[in-house]
């Protein structure tokens, strides 16, 4: 019974991951891709628990899920930080150029 429930849940999750992968494939902007990546990362934690249930060793697989829950938001922060820095650098360079033109 538990087996069947896990199999059905896992298959459904994989099926609903297909829209996310579609978003990664098509995604007009890079941000859409990152959004989909974030969702897939969260769902990976759930899938690890499901695989653990199938093996009958949830206590072991829960550790991975905790690692994902704790570290998954790192990539979002990095991307945000990167864009913040590049945008402000670009602004500063433009200001500097404007100053040179005035001079």
């Amino acid at each position: 019974m538990i087996d069947w429930f896990s199999i059905v849940m896992g298959t459904a999750l994989f099926l609903m991951m297909i829209p996310m992968v579609y978003r990664i494939w098509v995604g007009p902007t890079p941000f859409d891709r990152m959004l989909a990546v974030n969702v897939i990362g969260t769902k990976t934690a759930v899938l690890l628990v499901i695989i653990g249930t199938l093996f009958g060793r949830v206590d072991m697989f829960v550790d991975f899920a905790i690692a994902y829950a704790l570290l998954n938001f790192v990539s979002a922060i990095v991307v945000s930080r990167y864009l913040n820095r590049t945008v402000s650098l670009r602004d500063m360079e433009e200001k500097e150029k404007a100053k040179e033109v005035e001079a």
Partner: peptide, 15 residues
């Protein structure tokens, strides 16, 4: 963590 990463991406896109 989920709201934080949502906010981080939103801010990045906004800027």
């Amino acid at each position: 963590t989920c709201p934080t990463s949502t906010h981080a991406l939103m801010r990045a896109a906004f800027e």
